[in-house]
């Protein structure tokens, strides 16, 4: 039923039946793909529909809770209007944008520096650093969140966006594997010849390696940029529950629907928030997907 995409020049003998069976299998493939597409888009569509749902009950109150039908009985942008006028969402959005803009620059610099050093420069502590990096990576990240909070506090930084940028970027040095895998492919001979021409290591890095590394730079930057939009764990602890005007979108939206005594009549508002967050992130991601795929493939396969 399933075939490879690899062409094999010499065709098998049974021409007719082979062609027929290939058509059947193609139809089946399309069918499967369509079914899978529906399954994969279903929750996304539902969120979008929920965000556009504007239904009132007989007392004239907006029904914001989850309902069991799919197609809203009334469409409108009321949830979006509410989101931007009655909640702190615009602030959250700007906060996140600010944090992720700084984070992606810092993180990318750190990640690429470490990856380049680990891949191309030889020095005595290199092996040690690699081992330690691996061991550190195995501890559950949020185990030390409380300690991080108090370290930031000792630095007088808690409950600021700067602290969040610092925390998101500081760990970037440990996430160098994918980029290192990429640098490993750049032939050493290229670097050697530059060195013979009298180039210093920093010149080689800036003028030879980096220009060759556009895909991995974009991959690293993309992930670093998107991270703050998705994280609701670190940001929650570091920014503090009470500083609502400092929250990022993920934390803000999380608190909208979570909490002991939360008003549960806000699901549609939450859905609207999700749509506003998802549109730029997904667009960015999809437009950069070529680089993302390159990074994923490089990272997973290169041993």
């Amino acid at each position: 039923m399933i075939n490879t995409n690899v062409s094999i020049a010499k065709k098998p003998k049974k021409f007719k039946s082979a062609k027929a069976s290939r058509n059947i299998s193609l139809v089946l493939s399309y069918l499967t793909l369509v079914v899978l597409t529906i399954i994969w888009l279903y929750p996304i569509l539902w969120i979008i529909l929920s965000s556009l749902r504007v239904e009132y009950n007989n007392a004239g109150d907006l029904i914001g809770i989850v309902v069991s039908h799919y197609i809203p009985k009334g469409f409108g942008f009321d949830n979006f209007v509410n989101l931007f006028t009655n909640t702190l969402f615009p602030r959250w959005f700007l906060n996140t944008l600010l944090v992720s803009s700084v984070t992606f620059v810092l993180s990318t610099l750190l990640t690429l520096s470490v990856a380049y050093v680990m891949s191309k420069l030889k020095f005595s502590a290199r092996k040690k650093f690699l081992n330690i990096a691996i061991i550190l990576g195995l501890f559950p990240g949020f185990m030390s969140m409380i300690a991080i909070y108090y370290i930031l506090k000792a630095l007088q930084l808690t409950q600021t966006l700067f602290a969040l940028m610092l925390v998101y970027s500081a760990g970037a040095g440990l996430g160098f594997y994918v980029a290192k895998g990429f640098f490993d492919i750049i032939p050493n001979s290229l670097l050697e010849s530059a060195r013979l021409d009298g180039a210093t290591n920093s010149q080689i890095f800036a003028k030879i390696v980096l220009p060759l590394s556009k895909p991995i730079i974009i991959y690293t930057a993309l992930l670093a940029f998107i991270g703050p939009w998705m994280d609701f764990i670190f940001a929650r602890v570091i920014l503090g529950e009470t500083n609502r005007e400092l929250h990022t979108v993920a934390v803000g939206l999380y608190y909208m629907v979570y909490g002991e005594r939360v008003d549960s009549n806000v699901f549609t508002l939450f859905a609207a928030g999700c749509v506003v967050v998802a549109i730029p992130i997904v667009t960015l991601f999809l437009s950069m997907q070529r680089y993302y795929i390159e990074g994923v493939t490089a990272g997973a396969v290169k041993g």
């Binding site: 888009l41 998107i226 939009w229 999380y254 992130i281 997904v282 991601f285 999809l286 993302y292």
Partner: peptide, 9 residues
């Protein structure tokens, strides 16, 4: 890929 791009929360 949409699934990867969409924040998990």
């Amino acid at each position: 890929i949409l699934t990867i791009a969409l924040p998990q929360f």
